[in-house]
Design a protein around this nucleic acid. Structure first.
Lengths: 152, 152
DNA sequence: TATTGTTATACTCTATAACTATA
DNA sequence: TATAGTTATAGAGTATAACAATA
């Protein structure tokens, strides 16, 4: 935890107001997306944490429970109950991992894949504002964001 | 991981729409910011929902409880307990509203303002990746995002 | 009658600690 | 000894329904 915090801290030589402005705008996007996410999760009868967990499970991948706990920034013990309920609802399954029998892999069931798809249909679509930029502006935006994301 | 994601979208008639690409990148930012938010809240002994509520309270503003519930995308009844605990900790206060005596306004206390500032210091700083763009690129990014946000 | 905020209930999340089974 | 996952416990979030006070 403290390691992650200190890793994100950067000392800049000079203040960069444009970056602050960009970040402020991105946080506006973030706030809107968060509400959109909560509403979409509720509509699918998913607790926010459950919906968040599903979002971290790409179809076809095997996710160790410890890794899921790290992605959710919570304790391992929470994941047990979380997965219990998702499993009871038939959305995910536990798979034992023969190479290390302490580990259990979480995988989406077909039903889980379908529900995740519904969730993505509601929160995965770009907000209308992006569509008002021209195609070349959108490509420009993608390029800038891509470079800002690289190794960040 | 990314390989599985992209496998789900092989069937496309035209090259990846730039808006989808931009939105995908923004969602990557959101995911990282969400973890950053959870870690920062935990460090200040705030439950995620409590930290989220504080973020919606600008210092000096009076926020009706119903409005807070809408911002948090949750039921009014949840806000009662949430505010109870923030109030017990001395971070916010309830103010009766004389124009409509059904309404109660939530305001930050001085201590609440200070804690909110600490929270913002941890999640309000731009991620390091943005600093690697040149100043003119950052301004370009701010311009594009600003127009995408307008009226969205 | 409708709305604001509260209470009551049941379920879920979250952190901590102790435990097991593996390594 | 260390790690992955579980269990137990206590405190907090969340949705629903019913309620009192006010509009």
């Amino acid at each position: 935890m403290a390691t992650v915090e200190s890793r994100t801290r950067v000392h800049r030589l000079e203040p960069t107001p444009p970056a602050d402005q960009v970040w402020s705008m991105l946080r506006t996007f973030f706030g809107r997306q968060k509400r959109r996410f909560l509403i979409a999760a509720s509509a699918l009868d998913l607790h926010p944490a459950q919906a968040g967990a599903l979002m971290h499970m790409a179809p076809g991948t095997q996710l160790p429970m410890t890794e899921l706990a790290q992605l959710l920034a919570c304790d391992n013990s929470n994941v047990t109950g979380l997965v219990d309920r998702l499993e009871a609802r038939g959305l995910v399954a536990r798979q034992s991992f023969e190479q290390d029998r302490r580990v259990k892999h979480i995988v989406l069931t077909d039903e889980g894949v379908a529900l995740r798809k519904q969730l993505l249909a509601q929160i995965g679509a770009p907000p209308p504002g992006l569509g008002r930029l021209s195609a070349s502006e959108q490509r420009q935006l993608a390029d800038l964001l891509g470079r800002a994301l690289d190794g960040a």
